[in-house]
Nucleic acid binder design. Structure first.
Lengths: 157, 157
DNA sequence: ACGTTATAGTTTCATATGAAACCATTTGCA
DNA sequence: TGCAAATGGTTTCATATGAAACTATAACGT
């Protein structure tokens, strides 16, 4: 080895992080893998991004939300929501009206086409989720549920 | 409400996805929240990105890797690694030599400055991880460990 | 009423990212 | 050997993203 060697040996004294066991890293990998697998299902078919799908999913549950409320519920920032909505409205999947008492706010909802797409994608997404969860037994699934509840305070209705 | 109403009521027949209980969504939120919290610690201070830090963490553990091997171990694509390395080498945190028997390959390692930074950031990262895990009790932590093992096959040495 | 401050949403700009094309070197094999 | 295919790595180009600036409307205090 001619190249200059490490100034210090890669040993315990430096206590290097073991990425394979580092929670944030593992969560990141897992999350990306799963989300991508699901996205692959619908992105080609419907030409829609993950953020757009999330907006649609939220509007399917909560009809008439404003853009800001969508941002809250999807944990996306308002710029991302604004852009997703622009595409969704242009694509005829989301309808946008102006709020009666507040002309700044929009009143959003799925269109018929939006519902049609939703009704095809939602079962696919759920099926993928089941595939992942199938790797766990019932007890593990219950613990996962409980652990996620503790780590991520869920925003309730 | 004068604006055109939903073509269909938001009821059970459409079975909308409940994002708050949808595993991929929750993992995504959790992962981003945690990674960002850690990144906030070092990004300002050291002007370094998450991808760059991951490359450094891997080189701290496995000295002399090639860029491709770094990509494998960080689950990043090779373009991202190439760019991260360019910045790290320019910043004097990573050394790059050419492999003796294969002039295409680089032989990477942390420099003294790289080690110095690593030795400050690694404990911070671990501390943040502990903060998150502190929300769980010992039993839950054990289950989480086990569940992650089952869901994400770890690449071993 | 009227100006100040806050809020909803969009646009701009600068940076991050990934796919595909690219260059250099090595490997496989006729 | 010598040439096609594979591999390591970088660059290019097109798209995604977020912070900050901006526009329009509403709320608040006087």
């Amino acid at each position: 080895m001619p190249a200059k060697r490490q100034p210090a040996p890669t040993t315990a004294e430096h206590a290097p992080l073991e990425l394979e066991h580092f929670l944030p890293y593992r969560l990141s990998i897992l999350s990306n893998t799963i989300s991508q697998a699901i996205a692959d299902d619908y992105q080609r078919r419907y030409d829609i991004s993950v953020t757009e799908w999330r907006v649609m999913a939220v509007l399917a549950r909560f009809d008439g939300l404003s853009a800001r409320e969508v941002a809250e519920r999807t944990a996306m920032d308002k710029v991302a929501v604004s852009r997703a909505l622009a595409r969704l409205v242009a694509g005829g999947r989301v309808s946008r009206a102006i709020h009666n008492n507040d002309k700044r706010r929009s009143v959003l909802g799925l269109t018929e086409a939006g519902w049609a797409m939703h009704d095809e994608v939602a079962p696919m997404a759920r099926a993928r989720e089941r595939e992942v969860l199938a790797k766990l037994d019932a007890e593990e699934r219950a613990w996962l549920e409980r652990i996620l509840d503790k780590l991520t305070p869920v925003k309730q209705e």
